[in-house]
């Protein structure tokens, strides 16, 4: 059942710019570094002995922001497909359970963001190589800096999907999203319990993997809460 729904979702996102956005996110993060290194490469290389590490640090300073922005934009697009002509009533009147409708939306979004994450890994390696940062490419670190933020951002995805599906007024999820972006940007001053801090991988223990586990755990929890709320509500 889920497989068929996901297939249908992928058909529905055609021509809506989803694939372009999935590409644009990671590309934008690297493009900012292209500008950064393009303008002041010498200066940046002088900052550290570990050129790859420093480059990765620069890249990863934008990753959480791009990720949260991507989540806000993609979830909003995703629900606007159904909201535009109130296709929710058509979709839910089909012989499918409501939880599988919700899960299929989440799966497609998580899948697109995962693709973005893979692309980010590839782009990081490619541009790092173009910059000639050395032959010892720290593959493991690069993968970590791409995938950890993704997993740590799952609660934000679950929350945004929840808000976006149950709001009739799109300005609510978008405003909440902008607020989340601001939180993500201010991660360094946020307390550890705030979900928007997690994609930055910062915490008091200096142990990024904690944010990953928190992300998966709380992400599941928020997903379940959102799903049950969606099931509970009448379709207008």
């Amino acid at each position: 059942m889920i497989g068929k729904l996901v297939e249908a979702e992928f058909l529905k996102i055609k021509r809506k710019g989803f694939w372009f956005l999935t590409f644009l996110g990671p590309f934008g993060v690297i493009a900012l570094q292209m500008v950064n290194y393009g303008v002041r490469k010498e200066y940046l290389l002088r900052q550290s002995d570990d050129d790859w590490g420093y480059f990765l640090l620069n890249v990863s300073s934008f990753t959480p922001l791009a990720l949260v922005l991507g989540i806000v934009i993609l979830t909003s697009f995703m629900t606007s497909i159904e909201n535009e002509t109130n296709a929710w009533k058509q979709l839910v009147a089909l012989p499918v359970s409501k939880w599988s409708v919700y899960l299929s939306k989440f799966t497609v979004l998580a899948g697109l963001l995962l693709l973005s994450t893979v692309l980010l890994t590839i782009f990081t390696i490619l541009y790092g190589t173009v910059l000639n940062l050395g032959h010892d490419i720290p593959y493991l670190e690069i993968i970590k800096y791409s995938f950890y933020p993704y997993l740590a951002a799952l609660p934000v995805l679950a929350l945004q999907l929840w808000i976006a599906t149950v709001s009739h007024n799109q300005s609510i999820p978008i405003t909440a999203g902008v607020l989340g972006v601001i939180f993500t940007y201010s991660a360094h001053i946020l307390p550890d319990w705030m979900i928007w801090k997690w994609p930055s991988l910062m915490n008091d223990w200096n142990e990024p993997v904690i944010n990953v586990f928190l992300g998966i755990g709380v992400g599941c929890l928020l997903y379940i809460i959102g799903m049950f709320d969606f099931i509970r509500r009448d379709v207008k």
Binding site: R15, A87, W88, Q90, L94
Partner: peptide, 19 residues
Amino acid sequence: SYYPHLTAYENLEAVRKIL
């Protein structure tokens, strides 16, 4: 209810996949 950015065929296909 329909998906305006899809063709008539694609609209039906999106539902057909589920049915």
